[in-house]
Design a protein around this nucleic acid. Structure first.
Lengths: 182, 182
DNA sequence: GATAGCATGTAACGGGTTACATGATTTA
DNA sequence: TAAATCATGTAACCCGTTACATGCTATC
């Protein structure tokens, strides 16, 4: 499990509330990890109980109060220990691949639309990532350590989207070859 | 959720026991989906209760009896309906990416070994996939529908491994640039 | 005699998803 | 006045992981 560690990294980069963390998981952290606010609040509470994070009530005007979390010493060393533990490479669970093999027992036409839809989503994500790259890392030669690492992770997200788009093109060509009448 | 649908596809390709399904999930289905025998037995029981699969007790000599499952009509139409429903593209959850960003607050050297380890695992998986390709699809021009689709899925797995290896090389170069003394 | 393979399960735990719930403020 | 944003949570359900459990047969 890395959600708690992803939260620790994000809070080390910048302390913030559960709500703010949820927004970060929609943006930069979303390049490699997703989490909903429900998950985040649940884990934050556990981390608070375990002494991994400190909380500070912050009054705001024109907005609800918030709880600002920051990393405590125990959290820092928990992260450090985890960094030294091996983690498993990601296992693939790809619904589309199941559907592709299922087409052998069904009509391909419905799947073609679905593959096109997925392709569009990956193209949109790629564009979003490329915009983020242009905005946040315009001069890759002149980055600090933190940004150099963030950029390397973002390049992984970009490569992931590009690979998907190419593979989906391949799948589409294959599906069309199955029915030349289409 | 696609485990039950992956099982349906596998049983359509070839009826079999829970044990046999578990082995298939270690092999060809493992290109795009993983599952343990515990999961499979649990889901098979549910599918049996729902009338998606039929069971037949098969006595064997020199081996324990087994329950051979095959797809029932209700299972076939459930799969057909699912094929027509949109599924979400995979969300990325990448522990290594969390670790990479965490390095900004820790020593990079431990991570380098971990990245090298991951790279080796992906190289081994790539080789395994390429062997499977050579063995099962030696003449891609002369495949039936089912195998053409299986091959397309396998090409996705191959592309996934290649992308990973390239990205991990990129990450390693980045980490080394952070510490030119290493 | 020990290990590996065949075959089927139960139980406990934690994580992820979805739905539900509240309440204030700002903007269209 | 309706919708969007800020902010925090509870509850239920299912899925995936890990550990435990049994017992037979074939091979080394």
């Amino acid at each position: 499990m890395a959600l708690e560690h992803a939260i620790l990294v994000s809070l080390l980069e910048q302390p913030g509330s559960g709500y703010e963390l949820a927004r970060r998981f929609d943006r930069s952290i979303g390049y490699f990890w997703t989490a909903t606010h429900q998950q985040i609040y649940r884990v934050l509470k556990r981390m608070e109980n375990d002494g991994w994070v400190d909380v500070r009530e912050v009054a705001q005007d024109g907005r609800p109060d918030k709880k600002e979390y920051s990393v405590a010493e125990a959290g820092r060393s928990a992260l450090s220990g985890w960094l030294r533990d091996p983690v498993e490479p990601e296992t693939i669970r790809h619904d589309l691949a199941v559907k592709i093999r299922a087409v052998a027992f069904d009509d391909p036409s419905a799947l073609i639309a679905e593959v096109v839809r997925h392709r569009e989503i990956h193209v949109a994500r790629l564009e979003h990532f490329l915009e983020g790259e242009k905005r946040d890392f315009p001069d890759p030669g002149a980055l600090g350590t933190r940004q150099t690492l963030q950029h390397a992770v973002l390049r992984g997200g970009i490569a992931f989207q590009r690979m998907h788009i190419e593979w989906l093109d391949d799948v589409l060509a294959t599906l069309h070859r199955l029915r030349p009448d289409n």
